[in-house]
Design a protein around this nucleic acid. Sequence first.
RNA 1: GCGGCGGUCGUCUAGCCUGGACUAGGACGCCGGCCCUCCAAGCCGGAGAUCCCGGGUUCAAAUCCCGGCCGCCGCACCA
Length: 594
Amino acid sequence: MSLKVGLIILAQSDLHDKIIDLAKRRGIFWPSFEIYGGVAGFYDFGPVGVFIKRSIIDLWLKFFVYSQENVIEIETPIINPRVVFKASGHEEHFTDPVVECSSCGKVFRADHLVKEFTGIDVEGRSLREIDEVIRKYDLKCPECGGIFKPASSALLLFATEIGPYKGSPGYLRPEHAQGMFINFAKILRVVGEKLPLGLAQVGKVARNEISPRQALLRLREFTIMEVEFFFDPERESAESKNISESVMNEKLRVVTADMRMKGIEEPIEITVKELIENRVVKSAWLAYWMGIGNLFVKSLGIPAGKIRFFEKLPHERAHYSAQTFDQEVYTSRYGWIEVAGYAYRTTYDLERHAEFSKADLTYYRKYEAPIIKTIEVAYPNPQEILKLLGASKYSEVMRELSQHNPEELFRELLVNNSVVAAGISLPRECFIIKKEEVKIHGEKIYPHVVEPSFGVERLFYVVLEYAYSERDGKVVLKLPPHIAPYHVAVFPLVAGKKPEHQRMIDIAKSIYRDLVKRGFRVLYDEEGSIGKRYARVDEIGVPYAVTVDYQTLEDNTVTVRDRDTTQQIRIDINKLPEYLNTLILRELNLNMFQ
RNA sequence: GCGGCGGUCGUCUAGCCUGGACUAGGACGCCGGCCCUCCAAGCCGGAGAUCCCGGGUUCAAAUCCCGGCCGCCGCACCA
């Protein structure tokens, strides 16, 4: 490694450390349970952190729910009964195979152990196959030479018990998706049986990660913002024609799986429209949500050039996905990290839940005009059957025949020239055969699903990385105003004992109360010197600071200081709310759907 | 989970190698007071440390040894 590269890595590591320091110092976030030594993979959020985090969530809701006519938000439990994750496939796939030594009790990753000692790759094989290899090669515990117990699966789902005494097994959800699939049919009725339909959910999930690390980037409990977007694949192409021009023309930086297999990792710039038309994506809606996601992440202050969409290779994809793009943001220490995943889940989940629950999770696709079909049918002829069997078996045979529809009966006659009912073979003469016209108004289908899914804490971290700056050795967090913890700070210039100082304090406090009443998040501070107060609010990213000074006492004006330039302008107190509103919303409006 | 490195007031750090004079020192921050016309001013006073946890060695452990926890880096993992 050259000296230059070493220095760059050192400098980059600094940024990560500085953010962790700032976060701890100013109450943004810190490791949980510290007084008990800490537990890896859990973080607490302090007052400033909570505000920023909630603002990120609110902004996401604006982009993915409130401005989307087809998307609604729901909330479902964190704790789910076990059957949910049997159906979803997680219990089967969300695991690592492990073997335990029967004498010393040490646990090893089974596939790694086998690979190491035999060279055989058993990744993805069944536990039984792994056991066979272990037996065949007579593998023993590398620690003590003991014999292994049969291989088992280490589940990465958090397990729990539902009910205190003899509880039934449950798991904490690792994603929101199952809550949406389970409720799909119910909500479809609520919204009037219309597709496309997006179900959004924001909340905590838990994954029992083997080795959580990297602060907010790899947690055992974290917040996901997710949409399951249900659509009819046959109408997708027509419906996606209505996507607004601003989204269609949104430029994304994309690395496709094809490119990756050729060893190319430099993204191409491609619009949403081109992704669809060139069939880079297997679903137009996948491209649509990638476009919205790009706009959203940019509005958090991440430069477009530091965002890319990275398609997963087939073996990297989850068991339910036909195509997946990770949306990644470049970070100083860890390089590209995933902040969102866009998965084309097809019909996998709905079909699985239908199978396990026996519920009807289909959508009734109405045809534009009913299809008229001529079918051949066979109706039982009661007189003939009675004549053939006599009264004794008649009712039993008729009951069984009524279980089958006339079309089925016709087909059976066609094949066997008779129908067997209650063990009795009925010849053709026992049926009335005729042609009928039927009108078919539609059919039941399983909608396809695309899923954009964001990790809030990861977004939070990358937002801090791109907002972090220093001026004269002091931290200035250049957060976009709409996600700042406070929109504005209000100060009296001096807070001494003189009567004019008291008047400044009174005015500043009344401005503070007024702005709070109008819905701004406001910070009031009179401690220390004015310069120190500016520095303190710069550090947590408050974009504007209002100062009441001597001139205020003369003409009812205050100064408004801009965090990023330190420039001040003087404005009448009465015009302050409107002025701040314009400033805070300005950037957001520029980014939203123009 | 494996390997390497680390853990001292809120933060950064001195001390550790070479055990004892350490009542664990300093800086910043914090709290109180004085001062007060715009970018971390000054002066005075104060609080604040389970030396990560547990065990061991020793007359004596922040310091040496063992185990654990946590963090960082690399490997693996990340459905």
